[in-house]
Design a binder for these strands. Sequence first.
DNA 1: GCGCGGAACGTAAACGTTTTCAGCGAGCGT
DNA 2: ACGCTCGCTGAAAACGTTTACGTTCCGCGC
Lengths: 330, 330
Amino acid sequence: MANVSVASVSRALNGHGGVTAETQKRIREVAARLRYVPHSAARSLITRRTQTIGALLPDLHGAFFSELIRGIDLAARARGLYLLVSSSHGDATEAAIALRAMQGRVDGLLVMSPHADAAFLDENLPIILPTVLINSHVRSERHAALDVDDFGGAKAMVDHLLAGGRKRIVFIAGPAVNHDVEERARGYREALAAAGLGDTAVVLQGDFTEASGYRMAKEALAMSPRPDAIFAANDMMAIGALSALAEAGVATPGDIAVTGFDDIPMARYVSPPLTTVRVRIAELGEAAMDRLARMIEAPEDAAPEPRVVVGTELVVRASCGASDQARRRN
Amino acid sequence: MANVSVASVSRALNGHGGVTAETQKRIREVAARLRYVPHSAARSLITRRTQTIGALLPDLHGAFFSELIRGIDLAARARGLYLLVSSSHGDATEAAIALRAMQGRVDGLLVMSPHADAAFLDENLPIILPTVLINSHVRSERHAALDVDDFGGAKAMVDHLLAGGRKRIVFIAGPAVNHDVEERARGYREALAAAGLGDTAVVLQGDFTEASGYRMAKEALAMSPRPDAIFAANDMMAIGALSALAEAGVATPGDIAVTGFDDIPMARYVSPPLTTVRVRIAELGEAAMDRLARMIEAPEDAAPEPRVVVGTELVVRASCGASDQARRRN
DNA sequence: GCGCGGAACGTAAACGTTTTCAGCGAGCGT
DNA sequence: ACGCTCGCTGAAAACGTTTACGTTCCGCGC
């Protein structure tokens, strides 16, 4: 239609040069007029690139999922990459199927899955495919990984409680197998140990639900000596703890401080507003996507930057009773 | 490797028949052993199918986005389809770019965008591509569309308030251009009109933020006669209204009932727990995906089922002061 | 004027499937 | 025994790009 060969069309549209500025202009005009769009499958077939990255996510609910995708999507679009999403995986089998299905369809993979241990990955991932693990407990040399700084966040929280004069801080843990929980518990223990209070550590076993926070807070109330602070491994359990305390007529933060982790939107609205640790989730997604993009562009660049860790931020509200802080209502 | 031609491999792996059960088994075994996966680009090139659907979404936050994707993803995977996501579009230009970029890469499109009016779609969509509009205000014969039953939900809420004895119900609207808001306002007006109270309708202009709910509630308090119920177009504004009332020392629901729309997770935890309208968002996504899949499978089937509407559900909690209901705490 | 270099462009191969068509046996009816 | 049908299999074309390699043509230096 522009009286040129397909080769010239390819060169003109991709701007590879080797074609007159004038013909390039003409070809582009004709292409626009015909609403021509290159057939991506044919292009992928020959270039062996799909311009697509896959995101394998577990069955996440709420804001965490939303923010994570948001960060990933933004970073991907900034690089002209497409995003293929497969979420809501309940078990390892489903995740494995989804993983295999993505084979050859993506240039790289973002994997966040509680089921993804090293064996699982070896079994289901071609070694060749660039992969970034998000918040995974597997520590393999083979795959890059990004983590949330659960340890640092928990430590900062306990330090803050100690600075507020609390002496007997109990920790309500989440599901036992959870990597985040382990790190948060570790931060809790280490902060106490650093303050010379290592032997006062008490870990109660919750499961991230509000109900379990409620139950564990009741248990904490029955302890003797009674704790003066409850640090829950997530906000929902902290909220459960708040109701338990309110029911028992215990003042928060007067008698017992309560703090959480995650900074879910609701945290600001409970009574008293919850002091917690915010995780910049969108940043986590962006960072993972950036890392992956670099791996794709330079596969040889075997500088296997160790697990990068994205930061957390202490959000001080009323529930910790810290007297020295300006209560930020943000 | 299995001593057969590529043709037989294709037949065996796709189960098209025309190959002995025995050779099929052998080919499959070899394929599994070699971890062979068909090259999807090559397949797409010849079949002209990508097995992928694209989702174009605006800059959504929080649970709504999460649930919508969840529903779409589930329905897609159930049909063996992949999901290409492009979200976080701030303006029409970005959305247009994303739309064009998806050309040829997807078999169908799910579009939810406030910027997508009829002209925009005509300009950026090939007529050939099956498309389902989600919660859009455009009413075109050319595209299928799915809506949330905002009208019905709002009407049910106002009916409920009326049944609880409220006489002067004000409505706090959201952003003026918003389709959902319009429908909710229409439901509000119609319910009042049906009760012969059409002339008592008062619409205050909010913008979906908590702060605007707070401000509008203050305005409502200054009205004379004072309203006995405030119906906000979303939960965040209702929550803002609750604080305004609490600050003014007005009892909720004793003096003024407050209700919202959306049933965000927080709605259960504010004080008093918020009566609201729940939208089954995941169902919306699933329904849209199902509809699209049907369009793809049978493009000729020109039964252009009118805009399907997915239902809402009244969630009665304490803030409406209805005395006759069992307060469900779910 | 002639050869030469280089830019612009065309030709054709290659990518890995699916699918049509033909070939080739085996079984079967006559 | 012969031809026909039918089921299984292989050969080859086709899908729409990119790119290595030729070809053409223009300008330039000798």
